Amino acid sequence: MAGSDFRPVYHPAGHDNDLRVAVQDLRTGRWLAMAHLLDRTDGWGLWTQRTQVLAAVAAGSDVVQAWRSEEPRSVAASVMHTRVLVERAVRAHRARHPRTRELWQEAWAACRDTAEMSPADPVPWVCLLALALLDEHRSMDEHRQAPPALMLPRGPWGILAQVDKRDPHNREAYHRMLQFVCAGTPGPLTEAANFVHWASGSAPAESAVHLLPLYLSVERYRRERGQEKALDLHWVAEDAVRDAGHALDTWFRYSDLRRASQLDLNHLAHALWGAHRFGEAAQVFDAIDRYWTTLPWAYRTRDPADQELAMEVFLRARARSLAARD
């Protein structure tokens, strides 16, 4: 797939073939494949990842509600119901919809109910972290708790601790926390940098938490509006090169790439390419195969909303990296 006719595709399921089948079923208004998939999903990390993808697809329909009506005692259906309510509330907040507060309250109550129904599940608590972003003024006590270490800001640390108790270093939970910290920092992202350093400091080798610095680097670049600078010094700075290498040598070398987030793989390939570590970037492009994501490539263009421009950057980076390796 190194030829000029190679064209990547986007799919929320990535390499997860079973999830892809369930997503297709959802899009046609059916829930049975989703129910069967979740019934045989092992491990909280994969459970979190799959429910997040399914909720993003199901949020615009009543498929999950139909499932709950058919199987009112299904815990998985209740978890998905909560996921969908949270997804709708987050979207409403993003669009500044007048019903945002109502949807937020409904989703918050569902999180608490599902947490009681399924006490070992980290997802209701991950969902509460997602909803914390809606509290822009940090008016809720649970969103301004004292941090577990110096140099960290106040925030929903109790909620994060509940996730960690159930699934230590849960990928989505730490991303939600990073988003919360970044949202409260209009200027330099010093507190966010302290957070990712603290988070990755205790994460095991295979944890996707080690990629958080790469996301933070992209957020810095986005805020600086450093678009279309293919050789921008931002990406070859000592910290950026070190963070890319660290993510490669810890997460990429040790994790099960069949279950890896496509966003994580694309961020790592982007970071290694930007750091001029082309041969190593080629290894990550091999793992990506044809399942690309628009971000972070879109931020290296003159118009981040133009997917074709983002694909051009992705293909250019891929071709350069494969050529260096071959």
Rank of each mutant, 00 (worst) to 15 (best):
M1W: 11
R7F: 14
Y10P: 05
Y10T: 10
A13I: 04
G14L: 06
G14Y: 04
G14R: 03
D16P: 01
D16A: 08
D16W: 02
L19R: 06
Q24Y: 10
A35S: 12
H36V: 07
L37H: 05
W44V: 09
Q49L: 11
T51Q: 14
T51M: 14
L54E: 02
A55G: 13
A59G: 08
G60V: 06
S61N: 12
D62L: 04
D62Q: 11
V64K: 06
W67A: 09
R68E: 06
E71N: 09
E71L: 09
P72S: 07
S74H: 05
A77V: 03
R83A: 14
L85D: 06
E87L: 07
R91D: 12
R94Q: 15
A95S: 12
P98V: 03
T100A: 07
W108I: 10
W108G: 04
C111A: 05
T114D: 07
E116G: 10
D121Q: 08
C127M: 12
L131K: 03
A132V: 02
A132M: 04
L134R: 00
H137Y: 12
R138V: 08
S139L: 11
S139R: 12
P147V: 08
P148S: 05
W157H: 06
I159W: 08
L160A: 06
L160T: 06
L160C: 09
A161H: 12
Q162W: 08
Q162H: 11
V163C: 11
D164M: 10
P168R: 11
P168Q: 07
Y174G: 01
H175M: 12
M177Y: 05
M177A: 09
L178R: 01
Q179G: 10
V181W: 00
A183L: 09
L189K: 00
T190N: 09
A193W: 14
N194G: 14
W198I: 04
S202G: 08
P204I: 03
A205V: 12
E206C: 06
E219L: 02
Y221M: 05
Y221W: 11
R223Q: 04
R223S: 02
E224I: 00
Q227V: 08
E228V: 05
A230M: 11
L231A: 14
L231E: 15
D232Q: 03
H234S: 09
H234V: 04
V236T: 14
E238C: 09
D239K: 08
A240S: 07
A240G: 04
A240R: 01
V241M: 10
D243G: 00
H246F: 14
L248R: 02
T250F: 05
L257S: 01
L257G: 03
S261L: 00
Q262E: 11
D264S: 02
L265R: 06
N266C: 06
H267V: 07
H267M: 04
G274S: 03
G274I: 00
R277N: 10
F278P: 01
F278C: 02
F278T: 00
A281I: 00
Q283E: 13
Q283K: 11
R290F: 11
Y291C: 08
T293R: 08
W297H: 00
W297C: 03
A298C: 13
R302T: 14
D303G: 03
P304F: 02
D306N: 13
E308D: 14
L309T: 05
L309M: 14
L309V: 08
R316P: 03
R316E: 10
R318G: 02
S321P: 02
A323V: 07
R325D: 02
